[in-house]
Each structure stands twice: as structure tokens, then as C-alpha cells.
Design a protein around this nucleic acid. Structure first.
Lengths: 236, 236
DNA sequence: TCAAAAGTGTTGACGGTACACCCATGT
DNA sequence: ACATGGGTGTACCGTCAACACTTTTGA
């Protein structure tokens, strides 16, 4: 069918509803990787947990819709947000034909005020390996998000989006171990990471630990952009 | 906005139309990488070239819609098909709000009868670096498809989907050179590829060439699946 | 002084890259 | 015999993986 015929078809026939769903990853104070879920208050799947999401409005782009949802749920703006995949099996919502464009977001929970999200009686953060049963096809969406995250942290420095601006090398190593699901060699990891020349060592150490305090670092996003233009490839 | 509120919203307010667009890559007799385009017969963008596509029906999944379109345009079934990205800027179609889920397909043009596609007065294959001006935001869709292809051929053996079942090593090298946009060293390329043990060398050579005939090989998809399960990673 | 994590180098194996010539075939 | 691509091996270098002990700090 050509687009022209299709256009007329579109007038005559019903259209699927279009939503966005967000998989919001956050790293908490204890360096645990968590996902934001909403407890449903109405059927179907009443009282079950689900990904935050909502309908796309006629005058906003898909990404704008996702950012709006995110803003409404967490109060956060300017976070890392990327389209993940579009889910459209006819039976995925029992009420109606609903196609959902999934986005995933990376935020760091330590530095911002997320009371709005965490205080809300119907929203909560769950460790990624202790999720409750999820509504709809949200388990599949979550699986795909994890897979994307695992793939992408290896060749793009998106892990830093989850960390506070100042972090220790151990923090980022633990984060990578959590995301990738296996342990990494400390010396090799540090060597590789530091050699990339993307971290600014600070004259500051972590505070309040009962052992030698680790040096803090900052990710140099500007330098990364420069290097990238010159063909440099981040890889861990 | 929660899903529940959204549901009611969905009843009261208009929905975007939902289409699929297909970027169909094919390798022709002369090992040129081409894309299938359709010439539009109605405004907007009348007489311009566009990606094949059409509206998603209420009872079919997104991938089913893409396969149906593909079947209608090329007559082909069981081809490699993967979701690429969903495009939903409000202004991308001047007539109406249309959100399009893009898929890309890989087919080999040498072995199948594509008269249906090529004979059609309004469909034609264009070399990927000699495209005519495209309608709508199709240039962006195409760009993203190329980028995906470039990324994916490096770590998944999808290049073979474009080749005939029997091919020479030079053929696949040229294909990689075309997709990646730079030349590769012949000896190193062969060494790496053959070491993976995924190619079955045949007792057959190419025919009708005015020089020494090259050996033909076949991709061993079954062996690839086995290796993959055991943690093997294709990489070129 | 103990516990707990920070920090630091070397070696051997492997894989990547660069590179040039002879061979087989058809015209 | 010539033109055209087919086919092959080696040497160097950089990167990765494995591995253990000393240092600092707070309790």
C-alpha cells in the first residue's frame, strides 16, 4: 500500500493509541542501580507496578512527550534520554490497541531532589535485580533497556550520567560491574579508564568512610567531545 | 499523566496516525549496494522519491505491518528485518500528524525474482551514494539506517543477508568496504573471517570471469548460532 | 592494632596491522 | 603474452589479562 492510499485509509479506519513509556535508571546513595516504577491505581493490572508513561499529544514530538512524563514523575529536566524501541503487539494492552515508544533515562539520585518522585505514594525505586511483577509487556521493555544499557556503556561514556559529578574510581567500577553483571579487574580497569584522559582528578577525597579516603574525579564531557571528533573511541 | 488518565484522554482527543516505513537494502549483480524507493504519484512531494511504507492496521503488529509492506513491494518473504527507530516530529508530514516506525531490511537481489519490485513503474533501486532527493524526513531515516548498518555489520554477521548463498571472499570484502566507507586489507580481512570458522568452503568457483576464478563460500548460520551460545563474538 | 578499601607495575599471550609477490585464467 | 584479480605469510607492536602487596584512615 502506498502512502497516498494509506492516507485515506487513515481517515476511515481507527488508529492505534500512541504512548511513551520511560525506563528511568538511577543510582542511589549506596551505589545501587534502581528503576522508577509506578503503582497502578486502576484496572487492568490494578495495584501492580508499571513503567511511568502516558499518551503522546498531537503537538509534541515523541521525545518531548517522554521528557514531559519524566518531568511530571521526577521533577527532573535535562537528563540523558534516548529512544529505546517501539512496542506494538496488538494484545499488549487488554483494553485497546496501544503502541508505545519506549525511552530510557539515566539520572543520578544522589545530587538532586527527587522527593517529588520518591515521596509520591504511588512511585518507588526498585533495584534492577529485585523488581516486582510488572504490568503489561513491561518486563520485555525492561529487558530491552538493560540490554541496551549493557551494550552502550561499553562504547559510550553514558555511565557517568548515573554518577554524581564527583565520584571515585571504585564507584564507577562498581557501576560497570552492576550493569555488565560481572566483576572487573581493579588495576586494569583504572589503567584503561585513566589512559583515555577523560577524567579530571580533583584535589578532594570522599568523606565519612572508615578507611583510606578515595580521590574524587570528574568526567570531562568537553574533552570527550573533542576527542570524539578526532576519531577517538571510548571503549571499556 | 498516568496511564489510566491517559486512557480517557485517548478517547477524547485525536490520535496520531501510525505508519511503518521500510529501508530495503539490496546488493545487485555488480555488488552495488542499493535502496528501494517509490516514486510518489500524489501530493505532497508529488513525483519525488520516498521510502516504501504504509499504515499500520489495528490487528497486526508493527513488524507484521512492515513485512506486509515488504511483501507488497518486493514480493519477498522471510527476509532479514529489524526495527530501526520511530520518527514522530509533529511537522514531518505536512498533512497530518503521522508517526512512523522505521524498519530496515536486507535482501540479496541476485537470487530472487524481484520483477514485481523493479518492473513496477513507480519503484526503483538506487545506489546508496546516488540517491535522488527524498520526500518527508526520509533523508534522516535513511541516514539512521546507514548508521545502524555500519554499526551492526561489525559485530553481527548480517552482511551475509545481502549476499547470495554462495559468494567469494572478495565479494564480502567489497560489501564491507561499501558499508563501512573505507578500504580493508585483503590478507587481514580473510585471515580474520576464516579464523571464525563460520564459512563453508565449497568445491566450486565463480564462473565467467576473465581471470582466475575465486572459490565460493557459504555462511554457516547454524554454526554461528552454536558459537554464539558459547559466548563467541563475531567481530570485524 | 585492626579492619577495610585505596592505590599501584610487570609480564606473557594474543590479536591487529602493515606489507609484496606469485598464481591461475580468459582474451 | 598480457591483463586481471585470486590467493598466501611474516614480523612488529600495542593491548589485554592475570596477578599481590603496601598504604592510609577511622574505629
Amino acid at each position: 500500500m502506498s502512502m497516498e492510499e494509506g492516507k485515506q485509509y487513515a481517515y476511515r479506519y481507527p488508529r492505534p493509541a500512541l504512548t511513551v513509556d520511560c525506563i528511568v535508571f538511577g543510582l542511589d546513595d549506596e551505589d545501587i542501580l534502581k528503576v522508577l516504577l509506578i503503582q497502578r491505581q486502576l484496572p487492568p493490572y490494578k495495584d501492580q507496578w508499571a513503567l511511568p508513561g502516558g499518551f503522546v499529544q498531537m503537538d509534541e514530538s515523541l521525545e518531548e512527550a517522554a521528557r514531559r512524563e519524566l518531568q511530571e514523575e521526577t521533577g527532573l529536566q535535562d537528563v540523558f534520554l534516548e529512544q529505546l524501541y517501539t512496542f506494538g503487539e496488538p494484545g499488549r494492552d487488554p483494553r485497546d490497541r496501544i503502541v508505545s515508544v519506549a525511552y530510557y533515562a539515566l539520572i543520578n539520585l544522589t545530587e538532586y531532589n527527587l522527593q517529588a518522585a520518591t515521596d509520591a505514594r504511588d512511585a518507588a525505586w526498585f533495584p534492577i535485580n529485585q523488581l516486582p511483577p510488572l504490568a503489561f509487556d513491561h518486563p520485555q521493555i525492561f529487558e530491552r533497556a538493560i540490554a541496551r544499557l549493557q551494550g552502550k556503556v561499553r562504547y559510550e561514556p553514558i555511565g557517568f550520567e548515573l554518577l554524581p559529578t564527583k565520584f571515585t574510581l571504585t564507584q564507577i567500577q562498581k557501576l560497570y560491574e552492576t550493569i555488565l553483571g560481572h566483576e572487573l579487574d581493579k588495576r586494569n580497569f583504572r589503567k584503561k579508564l585513566l589512559k583515555m584522559d577523560l577524567l579530571i582528578p580533583l584535589d578532594e577525597t570522599q568523606q565519612g568512610v572508615a578507611h583510606r579516603a578515595a580521590r574524587l574525579y570528574q568526567f570531562d564531557a568537553q574533552k570527550y567531545q573533542q576527542h570524539k571528533k578526532q576519531g577517538f573511541n571510548f571503549e571499556l
